[in-house]
Design a binder for these strands. Sequence first.
RNA 1: GGGAGUUUAGCUCAGUUGGUAGAGUACCUGCCUUACAAGCAGUGGGUCAUAGGUUCGAGUCCUAUAACUCCCACCA
Length: 804
Amino acid sequence: MLDNKYNFSEKEEKWEKFWQENGVYKFDEKSNKPVFSIDTPPPTVSGHLHMGHILSFSQADMIARYQRMKGKNLFYPLGFDNNGLPTELLVEREKKIRAHTIPREEFTQIALDLVAKYNQSYRDLMVRAGLSCDLSLGYNTIDQRSQKTSQKSFIELAKRGIAYREEKPSPWCCKCHTSVASAELEDKELSSVFNFLNFRLADGSGTIPIATTRPEFLPACVAIFVNPEDKRYAHLVGKKVKVPLFEENEVTVLADSKVGIDKGTGIVMCCTFGDQTDVEWWKEYHLPLKCAIDDGGRMTEIAGKYAGMKSIEARQAVIEDLKTAGYIFKQDPIMHAVKVHERCEEPIEFLSKKQWFIRTSTPELKQKWLELGDELEWHPESMKARYLAWVKNLNQDWSISRQRYFGVPFPVWYCKKCGKPIFAREEDLPVNPLSSMPKEKCECRCSEFVPESDVMDTWATSSITPQINCGWVEDEKACAKRMPMDMRFCGRDIITTWSLRTIIKAYYHQGCLPWRSLIVNGWVMADKGVKISKHLSNSKMGPTEMINEYSADVIRYWCAIGAYGRDVYLTDDGLKDGYKLLNKLWNASKFVLSFMEDYQPKMPQKILPMDRFIMHKFNEAFDRACAQYENVEMGYAKAEVEKFFWNFCDNYIELAKNRLYKPEVYGQQAKESAQWACYNVLLGIIKLFAITMPHITEEIYQSFFRQFVGEISVHLTTLQKIELPQEQDILQNGDDVFEVVARVRAFKGEKKVSMKTEIDQMTIVAPKLEFLKECEPDIKAVTSVRQINFEVGDFDVKIGNPIL
RNA sequence: GGGAGUUUAGCUCAGUUGGUAGAGUACCUGCCUUACAAGCAGUGGGUCAUAGGUUCGAGUCCUAUAACUCCCACCA
């Protein structure tokens, strides 16, 4: 029946092909089964997937498989996020072109062609890893439909005043040539020099010491700040100070509590803009705006002789000149954390530009996000706290403009005369304003327009995947009915960005949550504290390599580990257990099925006690496993099934195999009874394990069970308990029999004799003997005890002598 | 500075509402037993991070402390 050895690489690919060819995972539009919908987070297309993706997707896939086998109609798409900077950089790198040198449509087409190749490799790997997505439901965030959805969302929000355009200083990456959201920044420790300068007071009454790491910002200096509590400098407040090297510029000394008295000299210069604090002071004190750096990171004309230099060159030049002119009195080398753009690790600047924002941070809105976060079902529950804490601290609106070329364009033009924005009509979407013009005139009767050249940040589109999935642009009412979707999964690092923004969009558009539950997976660690990522040289643990070496089922087995949401370590030891289980499952199935050659499953007239017991025991494990799956604990669910399975192998099969082998000794009825139990229990195990290990279970199902069950794949069967009449104390009674067997095994171990060694006699003492007596032939067979005596009393087993 | 998590056997981790500390693995001792030696049976091994508290009783609840991890804020 089954091959002697299970050859995973051959079988796994065979069944993956089978599932795709037979549409096993297809969403059925016409079905009247309840739908279970998953808003799969579209992976960013920037090169390759890593084990973190496999962990996250595999864990979610187990929920999908569980729900499917519980009779749900799965809506389980696999989309790709490819409208953002990472994809643009990928295309530029691979095709050796510069995005802004060719028309946007053309570049997008090149990107789509290239991305198709990457999508296919992602898809192939997802399939190879055993995921059960419906590949026909996929989308690209750069495709026409996603663009249309995203533009429709923008227009609707803009018309409602929720999206607005404003000039605001915001983080800017000079390398990527775009503004970036504060959530896209990270800290990097860099070495720098603290320069101590003497600023001259305008009235000639002396100098004041100021320390700075960015002296190239001197031309943008607009004020000096001291702490109002600082008695040393109280007399300075209100005085005018000359800016070194730019002495025609005089700025005022102001007092603000944000100044650290013991930091540097306790006096700070405020430039527009060196950092976030400068931005806040600039706003609060209505300071003038002086831009010393342009969007390419070069000094502007206000920098005088330094104009045109890169900021870092300018810094050196300025320091030299400061030294020559005698302004510098001390230089301290320091290490300090600098905000860098997470994509390119380049330090960011603050530049003031006109940007589109979405309102998210008023107290009323924040209250709403808190309520929605509370309404959402979180797994694990503790992740909610992160979200709530983040929302409470939210103090900026969501910036969605990017000064890039590739992406979803803003469908808007501005009137040349009055500046009023003209939005594209919905029926014309998607629109690229650079290549078309509004059909109507502006209210001011002007018919000339300036197109918006910015594109939307990728989050603006990836936050509407529920609307893309639910067909918002095709049918708003149907979409509203389909939302909220049932589940979204994501990593804990993007709760605050992706999840919150998706919640915000669903609230603005549909007035509901995007999904009922959010499951937050942990990270794959290469070793204690080392996250697997492409930045580290641990790509030998790439998913393809791992699957080829260990099999997809073993990798999935490992993915179902421990409590959901915790970080997991990827080690050889961790994979060994899965390998062992696969091997055991294969051997046990091979063995059991070898007694089923001509078997036609049929409930026998009489089922022997231990056969009834093992089926009840299965039902108990089944309930426990399902409860764990309902609670999004795939690891615990798997452990429940596994625990039962090893018990089934080591105790039940050992006991029943005598009856299967020798019907001439134990009777044909006894064999059929064992066959019935084995058939039901093995099928039940195969179905439960199909959630974790879809390949090997399919092979076993196809080799035997399919002919009786009927469904073309084990993954389309329904999880159910074995139908059995209630029976008092059956679980306890059966466990007692196993206990007797364990005592005899321990006895043989102590005597250092083989397990098949016969024992002359033993006495079983128990309060109730009826069940044990019924099992006498089984006990005798498995323990090789010649004669058994029974006595009423407290449970005990008295064992005689081995016959050597 | 704010928030979250972790700390239980050599290792990886369970331990629901408080009631005699569990599994796997490793180690050790046996066993070729007609599915599986990648197997089977069995032994040993823990001041549950530390210090207090509540309780008849604390791994579990409370308070503080320590170590490690992550997120956020600050970084002139």
